Computed example of a mutant assay.
Amino acid sequence: MRISELAGSAGVPTSTVRYYERVGLMGVPARTVSGYRDYGADAAARLLFITRARRMGLSCDQITSLLPIWAGTNCGAAQDRVGRLIGEKQAEIAERIAELAQFSAQLDAVRIALEAEPLADACRSDLTCCVPESQGGAVAVELVRRP
């Protein structure tokens, strides 16, 4: 099958398939006489495995570590490893939720401090009139959705 058919079977763009080839998640396919990529059923199964793993939030490195275990045949070992990776991902999410809850509380404190300040005609030199000091460290917030 051609790259567009392969990508369509897993619901990803062709650029994703090319990317997975570049980073080593997908093998380099055979080429037709006219130079088109030519994929077999094994590539479709592998791409589906990779796509589902990515949708679960696993990184390309984590998937790379899964591929030798899975290889399309060792479902039990792969299932065990995926279960452990899911546990790790859930721990990361719980930690991130705690960080974001702390950040939300910091923002609430800043909002309360701002609302308590009387409006000034001009900004103070330390800018506490419009950006008061907040307790706690900076919290990194990603503003883009991961694929």
Rank of each mutant, 00 (worst) to 15 (best):
M56D: 05
I69Y: 01
I63F: 09
L143I: 09
S59N: 08
S9F: 11
M56P: 08
V110I: 05
I97S: 09
L25P: 10
Y39I: 06
E115D: 07
Y39A: 12
L114I: 08
G87D: 14
D42Y: 04
A120C: 10
A7L: 01
R52P: 11
R54N: 09
P68Q: 03
G35N: 04
G8K: 13
L119H: 08
R18A: 02
S34M: 08
I112P: 02
A77W: 01
P68D: 10
R46L: 12
I50V: 15
E142A: 08
S104N: 15
I3D: 03
G72Y: 02
R31F: 10
G8N: 05
S59P: 08
R55A: 04
A138S: 13
P29F: 05
G137W: 12
A140K: 14
A101T: 13
A109I: 05
K89N: 01
D80M: 13
T128V: 14
G137N: 15
A78K: 01
E95F: 03
R124G: 07
A109N: 07
T128Q: 15
R84C: 10
Q79L: 07
T14C: 07
A109K: 13
L66F: 00
C75L: 11
D121Q: 09
E88T: 06
A109E: 08
N74W: 01
S59R: 11
R96T: 12
S65N: 09
D61G: 05
V141S: 14
V28R: 11
I3W: 01
A105P: 13
A43V: 08
L85T: 11
E5P: 01
L58W: 06
E95V: 06
A45E: 12
Y39S: 11
E88G: 02
R84V: 14
A116K: 05
C123T: 09
A53Q: 12
Y39E: 07
L66C: 02
N74S: 09
P118E: 07
E92F: 00
F103N: 10
V141G: 13
L119A: 07
M56T: 10
A94K: 06
L6P: 03
E92Q: 03
L47R: 04
I63D: 03
G57I: 10
L127K: 15
L127T: 15
R96M: 04
C75F: 05
A7Y: 00
G27C: 00
R37L: 09
T32F: 04
G35P: 02
A94P: 02
G72H: 01
L67H: 04
R2H: 00
R55E: 11
V144M: 08
E115M: 08
S9D: 06
A45D: 15
A91H: 04
A113G: 00
G27Q: 01
V144T: 14
L85C: 05
P29T: 05
C123E: 07
F103C: 14
I112E: 07
S104M: 15
A44Q: 13
S15K: 12
R145Q: 10
M26K: 09
C123N: 14
T73G: 11
A30P: 05
R55V: 00
A105V: 06
V141T: 09
A7P: 04
A116N: 02
R84I: 11
D42H: 12
D80Y: 07
R81F: 10
I93F: 08
V17K: 00
R124Y: 05
Q102K: 15
R55F: 05
